[in-house]
């Protein structure tokens, strides 16, 4: 497998208040399934989160429940084939849809003392309503994004490629603005 080009994620915007970085690429799978999920959970090696917004990890696999029958899975690049084939093995028992959407979006890593405040610039809902360790799909400046809250002031935001420059532009402006205020 290709080695990452650098060990650290690329910094896209940074100020005294907050920092935005481009996360290293990962593989992304969109899962839709309903009914008794046990066979899929066995194939994936994790128990799928049962409540919208909840996350679970199993090995290197990370799952976020987006809807009543929808999950987003993040996993290391190069491990997709194995997961797809083990889930294909339970398709007869539990029909489902598992689609590789790795090429669809990028992830911004947002951290720093005022990361939560930066998100309020584009989000209608209160970022504080997403507990640490949870995630949500929501709207950021008119764009559908997925937020993963990893710590009090550390978030990941998945954005579709075509919207990424638009979203990043607001994040850059916000970075500068929050720092200017802090002086």
């Amino acid at each position: 497998m290709n080695k990452p080009m650098s060990s650290e994620p690329e910094v896209l915007a940074e100020s005294a208040a907050v920092r935005v970085r481009l996360a290293k690429p990962c593989a992304r799978l969109s899962l839709r399934a309903r009914g008794d999920l046990a066979p899929l959970e066995a194939a994936l090696g994790l128990s799928l989160p049962g409540k919208i917004g909840e996350r679970c990890t199993g090995g290197e696999l990370e799952a976020l429940r987006l809807g009543p029958d929808e999950w987003m899975l993040h996993l290391p690049e190069g491990t997709v084939e194995g997961v797809l084939s083990s889930c294909a093995g339970v398709y007869e028992t539990l029909p489902h849809s598992l689609v590789d959407v790795s090429g669809r979006e990028v992830t911004f890593q947002i951290d720093g003392a005022r990361a939560t405040e930066l998100l309020t610039l584009g989000m209608a809902r209160d970022p504080e309503s997403i507990a640490v360790g949870e995630g949500r799909r929501t709207n950021f400046d008119g764009v559908t994004v997925t937020i993963w809250r990893d710590a009090d002031s550390a978030y990941r935001m998945d954005v579709w490629h075509s919207f990424a420059p638009h979203v990043l532009h607001l994040l850059e402006t916000g970075c500068r603005e929050l720092a200017a205020e802090a002086v």
Partner: peptide, 16 residues
């Protein structure tokens, strides 16, 4: 004029 039964979609959320 008054209570209306209507459909909504949680478009930027669960999608339902």
């Amino acid at each position: 004029k008054g209570p209306h039964f209507e459909r909504w979609r949680h478009l930027h959320g669960c999608g339902r």
